[in-house]
Computed example of a mutant assay.
Amino acid sequence: MTVDSMLESIPPLAVYLVVGLIIGIESLGVPLPGEIALVSAALLASRHTLDIDPLWVGGSATIGAIIGDSIGYSIGRRFGMGLFERLGTRFPKHFGPGHVALAKQLFARWGVWAVFFGRFIALLRIFAGPLAGALHMRYRYFLAANASGALCWAGGTTAVVYYLGLAAEKWLSRFSWIALVVAIVIGIGVTMLLKERTRHLIAQLEEEHDWETLRQPPA
C-alpha cells in the first residue's frame, strides 16, 4: 500500500475529531502537539484527492480550543493556584515554578489579552484556561478573548497552510505527501525552539527574583 492510498483511506470525520480532541485536551493544560495536528490536517485538506474540508478542519480546531479552554478555566477556578503546585511536583518540566511564574507575569502584563495571544504561544496555550480561572478572571471577558483567539489562530493557520499546500502540490504532484512530512518536521523544530526560548525566559526570571531577594534588607 502506497502513502497516497493510506492517506485516501482516512475518513474525513476522523480527521476533524482527532484535531478537535487533541487541541481540546491541549487547551485543558495537557502538553500535546495541537499545532502540529492542525497543520497536518490543513495540509491533508489541500490534497484534491482527499475529501477533507478545510472549513471543517478550522471549525473543529476552533471548537476544540474553546471547549478545552473553558473546561480548563472551570478547573482552575475550582482548585485555584494550588492546582499548579500539585501539577508542578508531578510534571516539573511543564508546570514547574518557573513556568507558572512566567505565565503569571504575562497575565499581569497583558491581562485578558494574554488569553487571546496565548493561543499563538506554546506556554500560554497550555496555561491560559486554568490560570485565568485560578486568577478569577471574569468569565465573559475570558470567553470573548478565548473564542476570538481560537478563531484567529485556527482559521488563520488552516487558511495559510491550506493555500501553501495547494501551491506545493503543483510542484510536488507525484510526491505531495512529502509536504506533510516537511510540515511535521518544521512544526517539531518550531516547538523545540519555543521551548528553548521559554527556558531562557524562565532562567532570566529566576535570576531577577534571586537578585531582588539579595537586595532586600535582612529582617
Rank of each mutant, 00 (worst) to 15 (best):
F91T: 04
V160L: 10
L50Y: 02
Q105L: 09
G68C: 12
L83F: 12
P92D: 08
M81W: 03
V100E: 09
A154W: 00
L151M: 14
A144H: 06
S148L: 13
M81P: 06
G129W: 10
G72D: 08
Q105H: 11
V161D: 01
A65D: 02
K104W: 03
A41K: 04
Y162D: 02
F127M: 15
L106A: 14
A132R: 03
I71E: 08
V30L: 15
A61L: 11
A61P: 05
W110N: 12
G129Y: 10
V161A: 09
L43Q: 03
L32A: 10
P130R: 13
R138Q: 15
T158Y: 01
L143W: 14
L32S: 13
D51R: 11
G96C: 07
D69Q: 02
C152P: 02
G72M: 12
G68H: 06
S148D: 06
L164T: 03
L87F: 07
F107V: 10
V30K: 09
G156A: 05
Q105C: 04
I126G: 03
L131F: 08
V112K: 01
V160D: 00
S74N: 14
F127L: 09
S173C: 07
K93C: 11
K93D: 15
G155P: 00
P130I: 13
I71A: 09
T49A: 13
H94T: 11
C152S: 10
A61H: 07
Q105S: 12
F84G: 04
G58T: 02
G129Q: 13
A42G: 09
L43S: 01
R119S: 07
F117I: 11
T158F: 00
L87S: 04
L172W: 09
R174E: 15
L55E: 07
V39Y: 03
A154G: 03
R174M: 11
P130M: 12
V160E: 01
A65C: 07
G155I: 04
G129A: 13
S173W: 06
A144N: 01
C152A: 15
S60C: 15
G64T: 05
W171V: 14
V57Y: 06
G76H: 06
G64R: 02
K104P: 01
L83C: 09
M81C: 06
